[in-house]
Each structure stands twice: as structure tokens, then as C-alpha cells.
């Protein structure tokens, strides 16, 4: 499998790797939204976390971890870059096709970008649910 330059760059120097705490701490924190998507059987799991400023609704920080191919790692790394500084509504507008274009992903790798879009949606919806609860 030959990879594009941008995929290799994100793969070798992934941006914003990490987590804002243990699974338990994150679950309890109101300012953090988590998206955990995929399944180990198909070889890919993506975890995306956003830290949102409650007053402004702006995503101040984002982190990811990914068990998946180079394209999945690159897609999630790129997603964290794009999310930072956006409002949660703007975040929801990120489309997997934009990721495909930015990273020049071949057709067999499109599902890796879909995974990133799903992770963004899941993280934002997690944040929203936490807030509608009080």
C-alpha cells in the first residue's frame, strides 16, 4: 500500500495524541465530550475527545487515540487539528469527504475518514448529552 505524503506526515508526527484522563475521569467531566467508534474485529477503533468552553461553546482542545491503519491515524489526527477553535456546531459540519480530499485517500481508505467523521459526531453528541442532563 503506497501512502500519500500527508498521511505519512500525520502518521509519523501525529498531532494531539492523548486523552484528558482515565476513562472514568473523562466520563465524569462535564466539559469533555468523547467519541469512541469502530470495533476491534474490523481492525479499527478511534477515540476522539473534545474539551469545550461552557460559556462560548468553542472547542478549546481536542485529543485522539487510534487503533487502525495509517489512514485512520492520519484522519483522526487531522480531525483534532480542524476541531480546535471551532464551535461545536461548526465541528458538526466537518465532512469525511473533506478529510479524503485533504489527505488524498484512495477509495479503499474512505471508510477510515468516515470513522473520523463518526468520531467527531459521537464526541459532540456526548458533550451535548452531558449538558442536557442538568
Amino acid at each position: 500500500m503506497a501512502y500519500g505524503e500527508k498521511v505519512i506526515d500525520h502518521y509519523e508526527n501525529p498531532r494531539n495524541v492523548g486523552t484528558f484522563g482515565t476513562q472514568k475521569e473523562i466520563k465524569e467531566s462535564k466539559e469533555i465530550g468523547v467519541g469512541l467508534v469502530g470495533a476491534p474485529e474490523c481492525g479499527d477503533v478511534m477515540q476522539l475527545q473534545i474539551k469545550v468552553n461552557d460559556d462560548t461553546g468553542v472547542i478549546e482542545d481536542a485529543k485522539f487515540k487510534c487503533f487502525g491503519c495509517g489512514s485512520a491515524i492520519a484522519s483522526s489526527s487531522l480531525a483534532t487539528e480542524w476541531l480546535k477553535g471551532k464551535s461545536i456546531d461548526e465541528g458538526l459540519e466537518i465532512k469525511n469527504t473533506e478529510i479524503v480530499e485533504e489527505l488524498s485517500l484512495p477509495p479503499v481508505k474512505i471508510h477510515c475518514s468516515v470513522l473520523a467523521e463518526d468520531a467527531i459526531k459521537a464526541a459532540i453528541s456526548d458533550y451535548k448529552t452531558k449538558h442536557s442532563q442538568n
Partner: peptide
């Protein structure tokens, strides 16, 4: 380091 599964 990148793997959410290893963390878990």
C-alpha cells in the same frame, strides 16, 4: 502510545 485499546 496511540492505541486506545492499550489504555483500556
Amino acid at each position: 502510545e496511540l492505541s486506545p485499546l492499550y489504555d483500556m
